[in-house]
């Protein structure tokens, strides 16, 4: 794909510069990392590899499976608002896993993680679902208007 583009001279220069700076920054980071000791390297290495495995072997395939189920359920194609709702719900939920479980909470510090996070998540999920339903209804109505009028309701 990249083969079709021949970069101009300034672009080649910028590439070289950015690439060299990146390499230097990465090596500096690696040196800092090695400075933290072997035990730290093993402990963090497990998490580094674990994160990639979690995404590539779990989150990626699960997303594909969920999409397949959604396609099966909607018979034809999954409506756009459902996909956007899924992105919002799924990604925000993943981003707040640590607070949902209140794993860092301390009995003697009520000001830390003070909210009812599961309750908050239910409200968030309910609002997302409502927004999806409203978007579907609005989409259906504008599609109907499109059939009667000249324009098309499809975005």
């Amino acid at each position: 794909m990249t083969g079709t583009i021949t970069p101009s001279r300034p672009v080649r220069l910028v590439r070289l510069l950015v690439g060299a700076l990146g390499l230097a920054a990465g090596l500096w980071g690696a040196w800092l990392m090695s400075d933290l000791g072997v035990d730290n390297l093993v402990a963090s290495g497990t998490w580094l590899v674990g994160g990639v495995v979690l995404h590539d072997a779990v989150i990626g395939p699960v997303t594909i499976a969920l999409a397949a189920v959604a396609v099966r359920l909607s018979r034809r194609s999954v409506p756009g608002p459902v996909i956007v709702g899924g992105i919002v719900l799924g990604s925000v939920t993943l981003a707040v896993v640590p607070v949902l479980g209140r794993f860092g909470a301390h009995a003697d510090n009520p000001s830390l993680l003070p909210r009812d996070y599961v309750g908050g998540w239910l409200v968030f999920a309910g609002l997302t679902l409502t927004a999806v339903v409203v978007a579907l209804l609005v989409g259906r109505r504008s599609a109907k208007d499109g059939e009667h009028g000249a324009g098309s309701g499809r975005r």
């Binding site: 794909m1 990249t2 583009i5 021949t6 970069p7 672009v11 910028v14 590439r15 070289l16 950015v18 690439g19 700076l21 990146g22 390499l23 230097a24 920054a25 990465g26 090596l27 500096w28 980071g29």
Partner: peptide, 14 residues
């Protein structure tokens, strides 16, 4: 940030 810069350098024309 280093790996990101290398990635941008590789993909810049694209």
């Amino acid at each position: 940030i280093g790996a990101l810069a290398v990635h941008i350098a590789v993909k810049l024309p694209l």
